[in-house]
Design a binder for these strands. Sequence first.
RNA 1: CGGUCCGUAGCUCAGCUGGUAGAGCACGUGACUCUUAAUCAUGGGGUCGAGGGUUCGAAUCCCUCCGGACCGACCA
Length: 576
Amino acid sequence: MMELSEQELIRRQSLQELISMGINPYPNEPFDVNVKTTQILNQYDDEKKNFQNVSIAGRIMSKRIMGSASFAELQDEHGRIQLYLNRDELCPGEDKTLYNTVFKKLIDIGDIVGVTGYVFITKMGEITIHVKTFKLLSKCLKPLPIVKEKDGVLYDAFTDPEQRYRNRSLDLIVNPKNREIFKKRTILVNTMREFLNERGYWEVETPILQPIYGGAAARPFKTHHNALDITLYLRIANELYLKRLIVGGFDGVYEFSKDFRNEGMDRFHNPEFTQMELYVAYKDYFWMMELVEEMVERVAIALHGTTQVRVGEHVIDFKRPWKRFTMYEAIQHFTGVDISNMNEEQLRQTARSLNVEIDETMGKGKIIDAIFGDLCEPNLIQPTFITDYPIEMSPLAKKHRIKEGLVERFEAICNGKEICNAYTELNDPIDQRQRFEEQLLLARRGDEEAMMLDEDFLKALEYGMPPTAGLGIGIDRLTMIMTNQPSIQEVIFFPQMRPEKRLVPDEPEKFEQLGIPAEWVSYVQKSGYLTIEMLKQANPNKLHQELCGLNKKHKLNLINPTLDEVKSWVEKVSKS
RNA sequence: CGGUCCGUAGCUCAGCUGGUAGAGCACGUGACUCUUAAUCAUGGGGUCGAGGGUUCGAAUCCCUCCGGACCGACCA
């Protein structure tokens, strides 16, 4: 049990007082809510005198007490509304306890209450609920950070990212705007799902635990299944399973999936993240580009009512059609160099002359990708399709129908970052086997991200997969763009964090066994020796002085332990 | 993994070239029947992230560690 702060102790006392008054701080019965804050704020009409019988619940976010009248603010999911409470109206008889004691003293900021009353407008012009009854629905035992606002400026805002991510509930309470980001994320997903369902594609589920991971170039998380005694991996993509379903006769399947990659974390990467993968039979990547444009445009409209979205300092317009470049065209456009007919050595020289960092292990494909990634991608702000990638980087994509050495692949780049990746899928099982074997060679050369050969997947392809277009779209990154957030942690409720190191104090009994008087134990711990293990290293002189100091400072009126007694505690713990 | 910066009360932060830990909000007590960052009076609250070093004396200077932010490297 962590030591409670003064304010937490006071709240627990209030809790006890409420209970002793016969008020259940955590009642079971439902509370009927017949209106939301925003409905009142948007629709109240002082002439019509509507909302004269409201019942509403939420969290108390501020209190302004003026003797026998008070104002408070109630926050529900949608917004905040002011409450007005009047002592003599709330307590018409002699007994003013409900107002004087329960509301003024025992209801704290953060408590969840239900109120009934009628709506009016104060002299200052604010729409307010005149409270006739109120009921405590849940007591809040921790003090909330108090965020104040005037003229749109926040004061004392709770903004520290670490605390906000580690304590997301609190973040969402005191920064209600952050709830809107996550609501937008849900709307984004719902919009995509509706779009895909309308077209008759099937939402399916495929394994997260996979004996062979594949479908992307990444390092996996590894785990173990006890009953089967085998290694399993958390999926890095679901491509290979969804394609098996296309082989099985589904013409269109998609999955919103959590994928896992055991790699670095930064503002664009979380170890677990969400992708939507879609596979449609009898289509190719040109067709898929049109689907992506249409779907993302629709998401933008669903979220903003327009195709134009402000992202950082840019306004990004998702209106169809998007610009298209082949990768070679993009490189020529941004560097002025035509690399389309270069061999590996020429590419290497080009990269050096453009100041792109490359190393000797890089093949043709990786060099081209490095040039593109360094010099083109960051400049692509408006949504742009980049097509026709080098074959070396795309072992699951079909060879280009015309251009040698390329595959039919595109990525959509937006705000300098990839938002999706798609191919005309490779359905030739002989070619696919060769590509896997090339990956095995890379793996042997030390490429930790090279793909594993998946015999079961190849077997499925050998039964015949129809020509298929496939798409993977990063939901987190799309949400970042659509909600104008600079960091992935802002669009994931509970981003991965390094666990907080927390020392668990030992039980008081353990200290008492050393001969430490019970009344002194908490002060020994307060002096910094939370566990008896820590006491082993203690300097008895220092501890003795600290304890006597605490006794004096807090006027504890305890009998100071002698120095010899303190020494004996430390000796005893050292022997144990 | 490298560079820069940060960690002080429940929250937001100040604390200079080392010298008795500060403010606002929040909290306690009192006043106040239309306030709204309510106001007025008054009071309590701190292992100054952890450990070590220098010093008569460290929140402050030095070292190590922990946690975090930003930038870069690596990575889809």
